[in-house]
């Protein structure tokens, strides 16, 4: 594990906008963060299921109920409030669901991306104020999430590859939530497709897939390795006292290839 990125800034522009208490939309390649008075009030990403998906996928809210709320309160940017006031959703439930969606989308929106970051001053999201969080909390959580994934299972390839379930070992237990996920692991759906189907946050699904891969219940696809040598190479003998992940991975690949 490296410690260098722990204190680096996820988005210098977000820090600056928070400092000047800006209101508007921060547009990045992988998503958008909405700020009000420098605090994060909403986030969206094409990778992350929105609050509408989270609420309707499990049948909590009928799709028609959601659409009616958007129709009636969208123009005045108070959809969240309307859902609660009209009795469709509990106040705590809305906050829990919305915060889940916000941190989820922010994780992807703040992913290291290419291309410019833009800010549109004055833009507000139609969901309206729910429970604003500080920009620094969003930054910290995004960084923590990146590190958490690699702590669980340092193979990023499982995040994007179609998920293939493996037979549990004799006596190995599969839990209720894992089972729901494994049932959709048909070798075609990716972790993000499973997240959308289940109505679970995308990051949660990435994390669960990494946990399943670490437990051997999901296949870890081979990393694209250039021409794996046929025999165990000579550098194996010179493994240093401080082996890093990349080295261990190369070692594993070499050993597997020689079996």
């Amino acid at each position: 594990m490296t410690t260098a990125p722990a204190h680096s800034t996820v988005s210098p522009m977000l820090v600056r906008l928070a400092g000047e208490r800006a209101t508007g939309a921060l547009l990045r390649d992988h998503g958008t963060l909405y700020l009000a008075d420098g605090r994060v009030v909403h986030a969206e990403s094409p990778a992350a299921p929105g609050i509408d998906v989270l609420l309707t996928a499990g049948g909590r809210l009928p799709r028609a109920g959601w659409e009616e709320a958007v129709d009636r309160a969208g123009a005045r940017r108070e959809v969240g409030r309307f859902l609660v006031d009209s009795g469709r959703l509990g106040g705590g439930e809305l906050e829990i669901c919305h915060l889940g969606a916000l941190f989820d989308a922010a994780y992807f929106a703040l992913a290291p991306g290419s291309g410019p970051t833009r800010f549109r001053y004055g833009v507000a999201h139609w969901i309206g104020p729910v429970r604003p969080v500080s920009a620094s909390a969003v930054e910290r959580e995004t960084r923590r999430r990146r590190e958490l994934l690699d702590q669980v299972w340092p193979y990023a390839a499982v995040d994007t590859a179609p998920v293939r379930a493996r037979e549990p070992a004799p006596g190995q237990a599969v839990t209720r939530r894992q089972r729901a996920l494994l049932e959709l692991a048909d070798g075609v759906r990716t972790p993000l497709a499973i997240a959308w189907a289940l109505g679970r946050p995308a990051f949660h699904t990435l994390l669960d897939i990494r946990r399943l891969a670490a437990a051997g219940l999901v296949e870890t696809p081979a990393e694209p390795v250039a021409a794996t040598p046929a025999a165990v190479p000579s550098w194996v003998a010179t493994v240093s006292a401080d082996p890093d992940i990349a080295l261990l991975r190369r070692l594993r690949d070499a050993l597997e290839a020689s079996l």
């Binding site: 499990g58 439930e93 829990i96």
Partner: peptide, 9 residues
Amino acid sequence: VETTFDSSV
């Protein structure tokens, strides 16, 4: 906390 949507809180 038991929510009616899929959560873990």
